[in-house]
């Protein structure tokens, strides 16, 4: 074929149909479907064995749908395994930590981006150090402080090992840098004329922040919230080290304990895994774009 012809053919393709040639498309599809199955199969396995008896899991029916749907596994996990308590604990700890880190993060971002002062860039850089600091870095001193606080009467009612604040405060602190990073992106996009107009109308910094800036930060709140939610909901190391009583356990530690107790009975363990996972997966069904976007926002600048 002459050179001009190839160009013409390619041009035509690129204008009408940019997708690859059919044969290549089929191969790509086979590979993508293979990878889809590899991703979905463990999740499918988890869901089905959560509804089976040991007899089915251990040989009669390893990977098929359950012959008899044993919903009682779920009530075992919920009641004997106390998953309902761990579930509520996880929600409480996660929501409180996110609320604190978003509020503190937005206030700090406001001071950094919308008030003019000399050290604002440096302060921002200081907060950004948190993006690379591993959670392990502070575990020893924080553990020692918490265990000392546990022995102080009065203070140990609200702070110390085995309290809700034990996890809420560290989670909020470790979510803060990301909150500031993401909020900075959103806040600098709000036109500065708004602040000036507010000042002319007699608003101080506080009124400007609460009445004008905060209402415009809703998209930032959802982006930060989604990202931090998954970090806190799934966090295991602090929860495992700082919480030893069953009352304040969060889901990851609860699951570990449950599977330690029920080594021979797999159904309830499967049910516990599903209970811990499905809220996120169902939310993902409806918010997949938003969730993906928040992970991208959290990484691209980090």
């Amino acid at each position: 074929m002459k050179k001009t012809d190839t160009k013409a053919v390619i041009k035509q393709e690129s204008v009408t149909e940019k997708a690859p040639k059919p044969v290549a498309q089929v191969f790509i599809w086979i590979f993508l479907i293979f990878w889809t199955l590899l991703n979905l199969f463990p999740i499918y396995f988890m869901f089905t064995f959560s509804l089976k008896s040991n007899a089915e899991i251990f040989g009669e029916n390893i990977i098929g749908l359950p012959k008899e749907w044993l919903w009682s596994n779920y009530s075992t996990a919920m009641n004997t395994g106390k998953m309902w308590l761990y579930f509520l604990n996880s929600i409480l700890v996660t929501v409180a930590a996110i609320a604190i880190s978003i509020m503190a993060g937005m206030m700090a971002t406001y001071a950094i981006t919308r008030i003019k002062w000399k050290m604002s860039k440096l302060t921002n850089a200081f907060f950004m150090l948190g993006l690379t600091i591993p959670i392990q870095a502070s575990i020893v001193p924080v553990y020692v402080i918490l265990s000392k606080a546990s022995k102080v009467p009065g203070l140990n009612m609200i702070f110390g090992l085995n309290r809700y604040t034990t996890l809420i405060i560290p989670y909020a602190a470790f979510s803060l840098s990301m909150a500031i990073l993401i909020c900075t992106g959103f806040m600098t996009e709000i036109p500065f004329d708004l602040d000036e107009a507010a000042t002319i109308d007699g608003c101080g910094f506080f009124r400007t922040f609460f009445k004008i800036i905060l209402p415009l930060m809703k998209p930032a709140v959802s982006t930060v919230g989604i990202y931090s939610f998954l970090q806190c909901w799934n966090e295991f190391m602090f929860a495992n080290v700082f919480i030893s009583d069953s009352v304040h356990r969060t889901l990851p530690v609860g699951i570990k304990e449950l599977s330690g107790q029920h080594t021979t009975n797999w159904g309830p363990i499967g049910a516990a895994l599903v209970i811990a996972t499905f809220p996120t997966l169902i939310a993902y069904l409806f918010l997949s774009k938003k969730i993906q976007a928040s992970f991208i926002a959290g990484a691209v600048k980090g």
């Binding site: 999740i43 895994l273 969730i291 992970f295």
Partner: peptide
């Protein structure tokens, strides 16, 4: 969306 799903699941799970 499918390929990203395992990221959302807790490592403990």
């Amino acid at each position: 969306s499918i390929f990203f799903m395992p990221v959302l699941i807790s490592t403990v799970v």
